[in-house]
Structure formats: C-alpha cells, structure tokens
C-alpha cells in the first residue's frame, strides 16, 4: 500500500525483542518467578519470542501464558457485534510471581487496564510489568510501559500495524495514514 511506511524491519523486531529479554532479566535481578503473559492476539507470539531469546542466553525457559481480555473491555458497545472471545491460558499459579504483560502496541492504555483486571481474577502477583514492541503515545489512562521496543510519535489519524510471521506471515511494523488503532 502506498500510504504505508515501514518503521521496523524483521531484523529490527528481532533485536528489539532480544534487548527487551535482557532488560527483563536485569530489571528483575534474574528470571526466577518471572512469567511472561502475552495479550491476545499478537502479544502471544511476542511473549513466545522473548521467552526463546531468554532461553538462548540464560538456558532457562520462563513460563509463557496467554490472556484474552475481551470480556474485560470497557468499550464493547463501541465495537458493534460482540467481539470474538478466545481462551485465556495461564500455565501456573501467578500468586507471588513477577508477571510481564506483553503486547504489540501501547496506545490509549485501555487494553492494559483490562489485562490488569483479568490478571487480578487469577491471583495476586508480586508485581506486574509491561513490555510492548511499540509505544505510540496518546495515553488515556495513567499507564506506562517498563520495556519498549521502539517509541513512535504518531498522530491520532495514523495507524500502527504490527505484522508477525505467526499471525500475518511476515515480520514488520508499518505506520498507515487514516484510521487508528483500537
């Protein structure tokens, strides 16, 4: 598409995720009790990739879960027909753990707010951190990311698209004019 501009290539995505993996390790003084939780849908392959990067340099496998936040959204009425609900799957008891939520784009913060509510229904983690591939600004809630692949200043009329091999057949992040992330 002509109104599309690539802002991260496949290689840049890989490097960003490896860096985030190191930062998670450093920030928490090791990976004991760390659980990665991907927010569906694109947060899940990103969490898997961060876990794979960690396994590469630490030789340990951190647990990875997946969270569907559809039933926790505050904007159902705005979305027309009820959105598709998928399964949540957390591999272990999260109480006392360090949860790292993983998502593709941080925008208004409403998805993360919903994810925090969902997590609270599963237990009481020691702490929750947030890792995102792209932070595009325009927060509507007091939420910030602990680990960011790339900060991308955007206007509200632009749309940031993260494409991943697992879901889209290709690794890239592009910015489109017109339309916005929901």
């Amino acid at each position: 598409m002509s109104n599309e501009k690539q802002i991260l290539s496949a290689d840049e995505i890989r490097r960003a995720l490896v860096r985030i993996a190191h930062e998670i390790d450093e920030r928490n003084g090791g990976l004991r009790d760390v659980v990665l939780v991907g927010i569906r849908s694109r947060g899940v392959p990103l969490a898997e990739r961060i876990a794979a990067a960690i396994a590469d340099f630490e030789g340990t496998r951190v647990p990875v879960g997946q969270l569907d936040i559809t039933l926790y959204r505050d904007d159902l009425k705005l979305r027309g027909p009820a959105a598709r609900v998928r399964k949540t799957d957390l591999p272990i008891d999260i109480t006392g753990k360090t949860i790292v939520l993983v998502d593709d784009v941080l925008f208004t913060g409403r998805t993360v707010r919903a994810a925090l509510d969902a997590i609270a229904d599963f237990g009481r983690p020691a702490r929750i951190q947030l890792a995102v591939l792209i932070d595009r600004g325009h927060r509507e809630l007091p939420i910030r990311a602990d680990f960011v692949g790339k900060n991308v200043p955007t206007s509200l009329s632009e749309r940031v698209m993260v494409r991943l091999r697992e879901t889209d057949g290709i690794d890239e992040v592009v910015i489109q004019r017109g339309g916005s992330n929901d």
Partner: peptide, 23 residues
C-alpha cells in the same frame, strides 16, 4: 459456530477459581 466457539472460552472462565468476568 461462532456461539459454540465462544462457549469454549466461557467454559474456561467457569473453570477458574473466580468464575466471573465483568462483561
């Protein structure tokens, strides 16, 4: 089919310790 798929996710909610979501 869509309803049966959603049912699958709802079953997962019912298997949780807190069997309630705010939808």
């Amino acid at each position: 089919e869509e309803i049966l798929e959603t049912t699958e996710s709802m079953r997962e909610v019912l298997e949780r310790e807190i069997k309630q979501v705010p939808a």
